[in-house]
């Protein structure tokens, strides 16, 4: 039982660190944001594992949900701004 939970904790921490590294090193903003959302969900799992359901709730709702959605919109806007607003190629290709 304790060994199982230890394995669970180790796996959770490793995945979390891996995700954080992937999010930080990714060059593309949208990829980084999606990795960040996944990171937030896993972080909520960590809080849940630490028996802090209230913190997990806040992390899932604010960290992954709200911040994720906002950052997704921001990343999109940044990408559009970088290629020039209303540029013929970018506005057609960028849905």
């Amino acid at each position: 039982m304790t060994n199982l939970l230890l394995a669970f904790d180790l796996l959770l921490s490793l995945t979390l660190v891996g995700l954080a590294a992937a999010a930080l090193t990714s060059r593309e903003p949208r990829r980084a944001v999606i990795l960040f959302i996944a990171f937030g969900l896993l972080l909520a799992l960590v809080w849940a594992r630490l028996r802090a359901p209230d913190v997990a709730l806040a992390e899932a709702a604010i960290g992954a949900g709200l911040a994720g959605a906002l950052m997704l919109a921001a990343a999109r806007r940044a990408a559009r701004g970088a290629r020039g607003p209303g540029g013929s190629e970018s506005s057609a290709g960028q849905d």
Partner: peptide, 9 residues
């Protein structure tokens, strides 16, 4: 829907 409509991104 996004994938089918072939969005450039």
């Amino acid at each position: 829907k996004r994938a089918v409509r072939g969005d450039g991104e």
